[in-house]
Amino acid sequence: MLLEADVHAYLFLSFSLLAVGVYGLLSRRSVIRMLFAIEMIINAANLNLAVFTAQRNVDGEIFAFFTIGLAALEAAVGLAIVIVFYKRFGEVIPSKIRNLRW
């Protein structure tokens, strides 16, 4: 079973993932779904890095490591915020919470 594809196919994959992520980010009303969407976008970017690293034999892979680390941290902090958010407001729908707008 050979996974054979050229760079355009991989890019199409990563753009599709990005598009789904953006769609989710803009259309979901739950914070957790939005976090999923953000992770999708990050993974799309990571995929690009990996693809070009594989294609050109450059050191883009290392950025993918960093990105994964940062994304994990971001998920941890984000989910902590979600919990505090829920305790504070009793819901996780960001559109309904407009405290910072004066």
């Binding site: 990005l18 803009l26 259309s27 009303r29 739950s30 779904r33 999923f36 998920a75 989910l79 919990i83």
Partner: peptide
């Protein structure tokens, strides 16, 4: 982490709606 968050919040079965048209166009 996500599972823990879901546990803390309690999962919901609501249909996750939103401003889909704009989002679909942009994506």
């Amino acid at each position: 982490l996500v599972l823990f968050a879901i546990m803390m919040i309690g999962e919901s079965y609501k249909k996750p709606g939103g401003k889909a048209v704009k989002a679909i166009v942009l994506s």
